[in-house]
């Protein structure tokens, strides 16, 4: 017990308290570290900061689009795989490849695809669809990151769904079929309700992961959150506050805001999806 408490305390619990301490301080970092009590000033600054507003809006938009899309996509992929298509293992490997690839590498590859002369625009032009300046146009830059992330994380949740699908007893489907339920009715009345706890897990992990979007938008914009703050996310703002502006206290305050948002959204989800009872 003692070693694990020590390790956990040093690397997980103590940093939380240190961050709490920092969020009430103004820290002078360069040329000798000095702490100065700042009261609620760092938190008051949260209200005034218009870049935080932009970051919140971007992140919220990102979560609102990515989480439902990747959850539904994961479910569709899992159900089709579970239905026993030919070459199941190959499909599984193909689907799962993007998830095991490093996100930094994925982002770089996608930046080539998104180039104005790149693959995606050629593809769109081929079908007569409008092409975009994916990296330079603030209106679509975040959409580009969304597309990439849905593609790379959906398969991970697919695997979780797949495992859950295999746990659903066959007898339930047989009974339903005897009662005259067709495939759709079986899916909506048996599969979906029984997957509810898994869906809660998938959505909760999805929300937490997407709220913490950092590396993709960092690489995409070279750390600036551009073009015109279009890819500025909360975690990127925290990074900028610490490493660019050296405002440790303010960064800790933003981090607590982010934690509060994630915790409250997870609690709300539990109200809707969390109960394990079903009729």
């Amino acid at each position: 017990m003692a070693p694990s408490i020590l390790v956990l305390g040093t690397f997980a619990i103590a940093p939380i308290f240190y961050a709490l301490f920092l969020s009430f301080q103004k820290v002078q970092l360069l040329g000798g570290i000095e702490y100065q009590f700042a009261g609620w000033r760092n938190f008051a600054r949260l209200v005034e900061d218009d870049r935080l507003g932009i970051a919140l809006r971007n992140t919220a938009e990102y979560v609102a689009i990515v989480v439902p899309t990747q959850t539904i996509l994961a479910l569709i992929l899992a159900v089709t795989l579970n239905a026993g298509i030919k070459g199941k293992n190959w499909w599984r490997i193909i689907y799962f490849l993007p998830t095991v690839t490093s996100s930094a590498v994925l982002t770089l590859i996608f930046m080539w695809i998104y180039n104005t002369d790149g693959l995606l625009n050629h593809f769109l032009a081929f079908w007569g669809l409008p092409t975009y300046n994916w990296l330079g146009d603030p209106a679509v830059a975040l959409k580009g990151i969304m597309l990439m992330n849905i593609w790379s994380t959906a398969p991970f949740f697919m695997v979780i769904y797949l495992a859950a699908l295999q746990d659903i007893p066959k007898s339930l489907y047989e009974a339903a079929a005897l009662d005259g339920a067709n495939q759709w009715e079986q899916f909506f009345c048996i599969t979906l309700p029984l997957l509810k706890p898994v869906t809660f897990f998938v959505v909760a992990i999805g929300v937490i992961g997407t709220f913490q979007l950092f590396d993709q938008s960092y690489i995409f914009s070279g750390g600036t959150g551009g073009p015109n703050n279009a890819t500025l996310t909360i975690v990127l703002l925290i990074y900028q506050a610490v490493f660019r502006d050296l405002q440790m206290g303010y960064a800790a305050a933003i981090a607590f805001l982010l934690a509060a948002i994630i915790i409250s959204i997870t609690l709300i989800q539990r109200q809707f999806l969390g109960s394990e009872k079903f009729d």
Binding site: D137, G226, P227, N228, D245
Partner: peptide, 19 residues
Amino acid sequence: LSIVATNFNNQLLSTMLGE
């Protein structure tokens, strides 16, 4: 300067894009 430049660049780009 880095703060000034970041804000300037963001807004100038949005002007260039006609926003």
